[in-house]
Design a protein around this nucleic acid. Structure first.
Length: 570
RNA sequence: CGGAGCGUAGCGCAGUCUGGUAGCGCGUUUGCUUCGGGAGCAAAAGGCCGUGGGUUCAAAUCCCACCGCUCCGACCA
């Protein structure tokens, strides 16, 4: 490809609306063009990289034995109503009507569609196990699209679905995908780590996310040196040992005007950790008091799972008053107004003595509280309910964990029979019984993966593409396009590289060398080859990998150039 | 959905407070000179100043409504 024939536009300045480096570079390097928030055109260079990521995903899916299909983006409402997600996905899903006023969804994911296929195509145990996948555009009405391709309304996603005869067999399909994912990200030059995750809207019994660690990541992750890693939504910890001294009788103390833990803590001159923060949640409509140490935060997802309820939300001021007898800020587990209210507590509070709690009387707290002595919290109502923080104890090995941030590039779920049961996807067993298929699902954000590569691999001058996903693996800088000899050498090299299956672009623009170098660095082609009149008369051409600094530039005779370039791509 | 900010040339921005009919840099086009890390000079093209309404002799500028974009937040007592 000749640069003068390619549709390439680079920008000198950062776009005004980009916050993170990878987003700025996507736009400056001319890979994408924004139409509106969360909607992007892939320009030729960007599409080339996207397709390369896509092909790596496809090859590894095929290698893992999955079979490619394509399902409709426009899907009937009936299908979504059957699983119950027409309502439960709520405003996250784009819904449209046809001219007959029938409802459709623009697919945000495709469990329903694939189960519909499975139940009609699969009828016998002989056809199982099977894993299918598609690489298809998905639509989600995100609350807040941001960071370029990171979170957009329309995105390319690889979604795979496995069907098995049993939970044990499904574990095997899951393992195969897990291994394929590791290969995919490694081939993209990404260091992606698997982390335990909550299953969220998709449901199912367990899941792992694959994260690229990056400061700009949207997710918090707790990680331990032993290899344990989990999304903060899911991460657990060991309760620290408590050896509280027994304390004198509890005593009500006035704390006028002090509402927040911070204010009461300052007022009393006691650290936040010696307070018990008591929050009232409405859980499936009933009030539940949740107690955690003053310096910790409730993990609502853990709470939801522990109580086994569908919804948890913080109570309104009126509900707080009727349940506790006080307003927020003075609530506590000792004798609330509603004596029937369930009280649960974080397991780190088990055995807490000498702590301070709200008194259920406005502007009053109780000090010297011994939770076992002074409250009615049942032993089984102590559970892991807080968000893990830096320095918490790893549940696996007991060492201290640290906080990281990550970009979620892939997610694998063990779904069990959640969809297959609701949609009656059954098969005949050997002895002619009907059984429900066991399912798994596995997603990769293709565009997001591409942006994660940029986020992880760039410097002040631009992107540094790994060879496997570079829009062109090699750029040949023809510094003197009007010089017939120089041009002949550059073009011959281009042809030789293409014959070897290398993607190459020749910068044949009538531009000053500085402009060409800046553009090559910005776009980040893996290898740069410089062919110029001066160089040719001084011994040859230059070969430099984008990732290396100038001192590693190799000057090689023309006849050796091909071999050196091919070697640099490895 | 709540709060804040912003919509002016392809991109980045000034001008708005204090109304008088639009400007800078980059990019683009042409010419000359330059030519190994974003060149210089000269000329030129390119704007319903987000949309609609209002005030005024006169509106990018003041008022109202709407649309769009960006950031922050979405109840942790």
């Amino acid at each position: 490809m000749k640069w003068t024939k390619a549709l390439i536009q680079t920008l000198r300045e950062n776009p005004g609306d980009a916050e993170i480096d990878s987003h700025k570079l996507l736009v400056r390097a001319g890979l994408v063009k924004k139409m509106a928030g969360g909607l992007y055109t892939y320009l030729p260079l960007g599409l080339r990289s996207l397709k390369k990521v896509e092909n790596i995903v496809r090859e590894e899916m095929n290698r893992a034995g999955a079979q490619e299909i394509v399902m409709p983006i426009l899907q009937t409402a009936e299908l979504w109503k059957e699983s119950g997600r027409w309502d439960s996905m709520g405003p996250n899903m784009f819904k449209v009507k046809d001219r007959a006023r029938h409802d459709y969804a623009l697919a945000p994911t495709a469990e329903e569609a694939v189960v519909d296929v499975a139940r009609s195509v699969i009828s016998s145990y002989r056809q199982l196990p099977v894993t299918v996948y598609q690489i298809q555009w998905k639509f989600r009405d995100e609350i807040r699209p941001r960071f370029g391709l990171m979170r957009s309304k329309e995105f390319l996603m690889k979604d795979a679905y496995s069907f098995d005869t049993s939970m044990e067999a499904a574990d095997g399909s899951y393992e195969a995908m897990y291994e394929a994912y590791k290969r995919i990200f490694s081939r993209c030059g990404l260091a992606a780590v698997p982390v335990e995750a909550d299953t969220g809207d998709i449901g199912g019994k367990s899941s792992h996310e694959f994260h690229v660690l990056a400061e700009a990541g949207e997710d918090g992750i707790a990680a331990c040196q032993c290899g344990y890693a989990a999304n903060l939504e899911k991460a657990s910890r060991r309760a620290p040992a408590r050896e509280d001294e027994s304390c004198p009788e509890a005593e009500v103390v006035p704390t006028p005007g002090a509402k927040t833990i911070e204010e009461v803590s300052r007022f009393m001159g006691m650290p936040a950790s010696k307070f018990v923060k008591s929050l009232i949640y409405m859980c499936d409509g009933k009030p539940v008091m949740v107690c955690v140490a003053g310096d910790r935060e409730v993990n609502e997802i853990k709470l939801k799972h522990f109580l086994d309820v569908a919804s948890v939300e913080l109570a309104t001021p009126a509900d707080i008053l009727s349940a506790s007898g006080a307003s927020a800020g003075s609530v506590g587990p000792v004798k609330p107004l509603d004596a029937s209210m369930r009280i649960v507590a974080d397991f780190a509070l088990k055995g807490a003595k000498g702590v301070m709690v709200g008194a259920n009387i406005d502007d009053n707290h109780i000090k010297n509280v011994d939770l076992a002595r002074d409250t009615k919290i049942a032993d089984e109502d102590y559970a892991d309910l807080t968000i893990v923080a830096e320095g918490d104890i790893c549940p696996k090995c007991g060492a201290k964990m640290s906080d990281k941030r990550g970009i979620e590039v892939g997610h694998v779920f063990k779904l069990g029979v959640k969809y297959t049961e609701a949609m009656k996807a059954v098969y005949k067993t050997k002895d002619i019984n009907e059984e429900v298929m066991v399912m798994g699902c596995y997603g990769i954000g293709v565009g997001r993966t591409m942006q994660a590569i940029i986020e992880q691999s760039h410097d002040k001058d631009g992107i540094i593409w790994p060879s496997s996903v570079s829009p062109y693996q090699v750029v040949i800088e023809n510094l003197d396009p009007s010089d017939a000899h120089v041009t002949e050498v550059a073009d011959r090299l281009e042809a030789e590289l293409e014959a070897k299956g290398v993607d190459v672009i020749v910068d044949d623009r009538e531009e000053r060398p500085g402009v060409k170098f800046k553009d090559a660095d910005l776009i980040g082609f893996t290898v740069r080859v410089v062919v110029g009149a001066k160089g040719l008369s001084n011994g040859g051409i230059e070969v430099k990998r984008r990732a290396d600094d100038k001192s590693k530039t190799k000057v090689v005779p023309v006849e050796e150039a091909l071999a050196v370039i091919l070697d640099s791509l490895k």
